[in-house]
Simulated scan of single mutants.
Amino acid sequence: MRFGDSPESDNFEDRTGQSGGGGMNLGGGLGMILPLVASRFGIVGVLILVLGYCALTQLGGGGGMLGGGSTQSGPSKLDPATSKFMRQVLGSTEQVWSQVFQQAGAKYTPTRLIAYTDYNQSGCGAAQAAMGPFYCPTDKQIYIDPAFFNELSRRFGAPGDFAQAYVIAHEVGHHIQDLEGTLDKAQAAQASSGTAGGNQIQVGVELQADCYAGVWAARSGALEQGDIEEGMRAAEAIGDDMLTKGQVSPDNFTHGTSAQRMEALRRGLSSGNPSSCNYAR
Results as ranks from 00 to 15, higher is better:
41 F>Q: 15
208 Q>A: 06
89 V>S: 08
173 G>F: 06
226 G>S: 07
75 P>R: 03
277 C>D: 15
50 V>N: 13
59 L>F: 07
223 L>I: 03
114 I>S: 01
136 C>W: 00
276 S>E: 15
143 Y>H: 14
239 G>L: 06
110 P>G: 14
37 V>G: 12
264 A>I: 00
173 G>A: 08
281 R>W: 08
111 T>A: 14
173 G>W: 06
21 G>D: 09
161 D>L: 08
215 V>H: 10
98 S>I: 06
91 G>P: 01
98 S>V: 07
195 T>Y: 14
216 W>V: 13
116 Y>E: 02
252 N>I: 07
108 Y>G: 13
191 A>R: 14
206 E>Y: 05
252 N>Q: 11
23 G>C: 07
52 G>E: 04
244 T>Q: 06
133 P>M: 10
249 S>T: 07
94 E>F: 03
55 A>G: 06
164 Q>G: 02
273 N>Q: 11
83 S>D: 14
31 G>P: 11
153 S>G: 14
248 V>F: 05
236 E>V: 00
99 Q>E: 14
243 L>Q: 14
99 Q>C: 04
40 R>T: 15
36 L>C: 03
61 G>A: 15
142 I>N: 02
125 G>Q: 10
256 G>D: 12
35 P>N: 09
78 L>D: 06
102 Q>L: 12
14 D>H: 04
10 D>G: 12
37 V>A: 13
53 Y>M: 06
260 Q>S: 11
205 V>N: 13
194 G>A: 12
190 Q>P: 12
268 G>I: 04
181 G>M: 01
7 P>V: 07
264 A>H: 00
228 I>E: 05
69 G>A: 02
249 S>V: 02
115 A>F: 10
216 W>S: 09
229 E>R: 07
226 G>D: 05
176 I>R: 13
23 G>A: 08
32 M>F: 14
243 L>A: 10
188 A>N: 10
264 A>M: 02
274 P>H: 08
21 G>R: 09
202 Q>M: 13
147 A>V: 04
26 L>I: 10
140 K>V: 02
32 M>T: 15
48 I>A: 13
220 S>P: 01
142 I>C: 02
179 L>V: 04
96 V>D: 06
103 Q>I: 03
258 S>R: 04
271 S>D: 03
252 N>H: 14
249 S>E: 01
75 P>V: 02
204 G>V: 08
104 A>V: 03
98 S>G: 15
273 N>S: 10
32 M>R: 13
80 P>V: 00
218 A>K: 15
107 K>W: 07
36 L>S: 13
19 S>A: 11
169 A>W: 04
147 A>S: 13
40 R>D: 15
200 Q>R: 15
217 A>T: 00
75 P>D: 00
152 L>M: 15
254 T>W: 03
13 E>Q: 09
216 W>R: 08
152 L>H: 10
136 C>F: 01
259 A>W: 01
220 S>M: 00
